[in-house]
Simulated scan of single mutants.
Amino acid sequence: MTSPAFDVESFLGQSLTARIATYGPTVRPVWFLWEDGAFWVLTGPWAKLFDHVRSNPRVALVVDVCDIETGLVRQVIARGEAELVPFDVPRGRRKLIRYLGADESRWDARFVHYLYDDPAERGTTWLRLVPDALTAQDLSYSVTG
């Protein structure tokens, strides 16, 4: 990867929604955690994403922003083979806090159960993508007027 004009680590540390594409093609929005050089996406047997990755692990993922008022346009595109790995609660908590805030009492119940139910019983799994290719671009423009 060539060095973009912005801090990719800080960009991926924001509470942004990514879109992940699987073979088919199928594209879906996901919350993610960028940690240890990998994208981490919560999934399980209840989700089509889980089945798609089990049948063909090649995926592409994009995280981007486009603000027409300020001209800020940035994107990170990752490609590679995803793997389904066991869910761990500490990482799950970090991911959910990132999107929902630290006060778990304010979270919708559908998110709380990921931290307190038995992941093996529910089938909660991580989709982990260590990118084979990662492209970051700053396509920002000046707004006049």
Results as ranks from 00 to 15, higher is better:
residue 46 W to L: 11
residue 47 A to I: 04
residue 52 H to R: 12
residue 52 H to C: 02
residue 53 V to K: 01
residue 54 R to H: 11
residue 54 R to S: 11
residue 55 S to A: 13
residue 56 N to V: 02
residue 58 R to D: 13
residue 58 R to M: 12
residue 58 R to G: 09
residue 58 R to T: 13
residue 58 R to A: 15
residue 59 V to N: 05
residue 60 A to E: 11
residue 61 L to A: 03
residue 61 L to R: 04
residue 62 V to Y: 03
residue 63 V to I: 10
residue 65 V to E: 14
residue 66 C to W: 12
residue 66 C to S: 13
residue 67 D to G: 04
residue 69 E to I: 07
residue 70 T to C: 09
residue 70 T to H: 10
residue 70 T to Y: 06
residue 71 G to D: 08
residue 71 G to C: 07
residue 72 L to N: 14
residue 73 V to H: 09
residue 73 V to L: 12
residue 74 R to H: 04
residue 76 V to E: 01
residue 77 I to Y: 04
residue 79 R to W: 11
residue 79 R to S: 12
residue 79 R to K: 13
residue 80 G to P: 06
residue 80 G to N: 00
residue 81 E to Y: 10
residue 81 E to M: 10
residue 81 E to A: 13
residue 82 A to D: 04
residue 82 A to C: 03
residue 84 L to A: 05
residue 84 L to R: 00
residue 85 V to E: 11
residue 86 P to C: 07
residue 87 F to V: 01
residue 91 R to Y: 02
residue 91 R to A: 06
residue 92 G to P: 01
residue 92 G to V: 05
residue 93 R to H: 12
residue 93 R to Q: 12
residue 94 R to C: 05
residue 94 R to S: 13
residue 96 L to T: 08
residue 96 L to K: 09
residue 96 L to W: 06
residue 96 L to M: 13
residue 97 I to K: 14
residue 99 Y to G: 05
residue 100 L to R: 10
residue 101 G to I: 09
residue 101 G to E: 08
residue 102 A to L: 09
residue 102 A to C: 08
residue 103 D to A: 09
residue 105 S to K: 11
residue 105 S to A: 14
residue 106 R to V: 11
residue 108 D to K: 10
residue 108 D to P: 03
residue 108 D to I: 07
residue 108 D to V: 02
residue 111 F to R: 08
residue 113 H to G: 10
residue 115 L to R: 01
residue 118 D to L: 06
residue 119 P to K: 02
residue 120 A to Y: 04
residue 121 E to G: 06
residue 121 E to I: 12
residue 122 R to Y: 07
residue 122 R to V: 13
residue 123 G to F: 07
residue 124 T to N: 11
residue 125 T to Y: 03
residue 126 W to S: 00
residue 127 L to T: 01
residue 128 R to Y: 03
residue 128 R to E: 07
residue 128 R to L: 08
residue 129 L to M: 08
residue 129 L to F: 03
